[in-house]
Nucleic acid binder design. Structure first.
Lengths: 210, 210
DNA sequence: AAATTCATCACCCGTTTTGGGGTAAGTAAA
DNA sequence: TTTACTTACCCCAAAACGGGTGATGAATTT
C-alpha cells in the first residue's frame, strides 16, 4: 500500500485541536504520510488493514477503549506497526503498562512540536523515543535500593527464592547446606517482617531490594 | 566545593585520546567543569571526596576494576553523583547490568560529539540519556512475547506462581478451586515441557511470556 | 452438527517443601 | 570484646507439590 518510501502514520487522539495539529505538523514533513486520524481506538483498529500504518500515535484517554488496551489489539493485526504513546500522563504505572503492551515509545504532550518529528526519525533509526521524564522513569525502574536491611548473602538467597527455586536447589547452587538456606530465609523473614515466601518476594520487589 | 553554578564532571576512560577529547569537549562548554579525569576506576573512587563530582562519565573496559563494578562503589560514597556509561558495547547484558547497578544513562562512543553535551543537559533536566539502540533495547525489555503457547488464563496463573504465591493463594485470588489451579499448572508444564515451578518460571521469563 | 479447545472441578497417591521452634560454632568487623 | 554474619544441625506438623485419571459445560472452529 505504500505510495513511495514515506512512512504511513495514523493518529488516535480524541481532542480535535491536538489531532489536527499533529496532522498538520506531520504532513509538513515529506518523509511522512498521515494515512488516517481517529478520535477513538475502535475505529482505528477496524481500519488497520486499509491504513496499513508503519507508525501509530496513540493517546491514552479516549472515549471507549483506552489507548493502552488498544496497543495489543493493534499489534495482533499489524505486528510491525510501531505504536508511540502520546499523552499528558507521566504516571509510572501507565508508562510501564504501555511499554509492556508493546509501545515503542512514550511522549508527553508538553514537548516542543519539533520533538515529535525528531521522535519519528528516532523510531526509524531503531530507537525508542521517550520524553525526558519518561526516560528517567524507565531507567530508574532498573535501579536497586541499596539501603536494604538484608545482607549480601541474604539478597542472593532471596533472589534465587524469587526465581521459584526450592531451598535445596538454592543450597546446591550456593554450595551450602539446605539448613543454612533455611537459616537465611528465617532471618530474611524476620527483617522484612513477613511470614511466607510470597510476602517476602512481594515486599522485596516493592522495596526494590531485588 | 562548587565554584559557581557549573556542574562538576569526572571522566573514567583508559584510552588517552578519547579521554582528552571528552575533556576538551566539555571544557569548551561553560556550564561544565572537568573536576578530574582518570584512566582507571580505583583512582577515581579514591579521589571522589575531593572531586565531589555531579556527573561521572564511565567507560566499561578498564584496567583493574571494570566500569560496571565501579558504579555501586561510587554511589555508595557519593549517592548524588550521576553515573553515565560511555562505551562501545551495545550488549544487552552489559546495559541492564549497568542500569541495575545505578547508571543514569548509557551512551555508545559512536555518537556525534555534540550528543555528549546534549546528554549532559538531559541529565540536568531529570532525564536519562541513552543512545538510540540502547533506548530500544531498554524499551524492548518490557515487551511481552505474544506468541506464547499458553492461554490467557494460564499466563495469569503463571504470573502469580512466579510472584511466589502458593496454589491455594492463587486459587483464592482468582476465585476458583485449588484443583483448578493444579490443572492449569499441569497444562503449563506440559506446554512448556518442564516438570517444576522453577523451570516453568525460568522458561517463561526467558521467552518473555511473563 | 461434530470436533476441539478452554476453564472448571474432583479424587487419588506419595514426596518434598515450607514455616517455626531451638541451638551453636567459626569468622569477621566494629 | 561484643556484635553481626555465615554456616550447620535438631525436631515437628502442615502445606505444597508433581503426577495420574476423569468429567462437565461453554465457546469456538471446522
Amino acid at each position: 500500500m505504500k505510495t513511495n518510501g514515506t512512512k504511513r502514520i495514523i493518529i488516535v487522539e480524541d481532542d480535535a485541536i491536538i489531532r489536527n495539529a499533529f496532522v498538520t505538523l506531520i504532513q509538513q514533513n515529506g518523509d511522512y504520510t498521515v494515512a488516517n486520524a481517529y478520535d477513538n481506538a475502535e475505529a482505528a483498529i477496524k481500519n488497520l488493514n486499509n491504513d496499513t500504518p508503519d507508525i501509530c500515535l496513540m493517546d491514552i484517554e479516549l472515549p471507549g477503549m483506552n489507548g493502552i488496551e488498544a496497543i495489543p489489539k493493534i499489534k495482533a493485526i499489524m505486528p510491525n506497526t510501531q505504536v508511540v504513546v502520546v499523552t499528558v500522563y507521566e504516571n509510572d504505572e501507565l508508562v510501564f503498562k504501555a511499554l509492556c503492551e508493546g509501545a515503542s515509545g512514550y511522549l508527553t504532550k508538553n514537548m516542543p512540536p519539533q520533538k515529535l518529528i525528531e521522535s519519528l526519525k528516532e523510531l526509524e533509526n531503531g530507537g525508542a523515543p521517550m520524553s525526558t521524564n519518561i526516560a528517567r522513569l524507565v531507567v530508574s525502574s532498573f535501579h536497586k535500593n541499596r539501603q536494604s536491611p538484608l545482607t549480601a548473602r541474604e539478597l542472593e538467597v532471596l533472589e534465587l527464592l524469587a526465581s521459584g527455586k526450592s531451598y535445596s536447589t538454592i543450597a546446591d547452587q550456593l554450595f551450602v547446606d539446605k539448613e543454612t538456606i533455611k537459616s537465611h530465609i528465617k532471618n530474611i523473614y524476620l527483617k522484612l517482617e513477613v511470614h511466607s515466601k510470597a510476602e517476602a518476594i512481594e515486599k522485596a520487589r516493592k522495596s526494590k531490594y531485588i
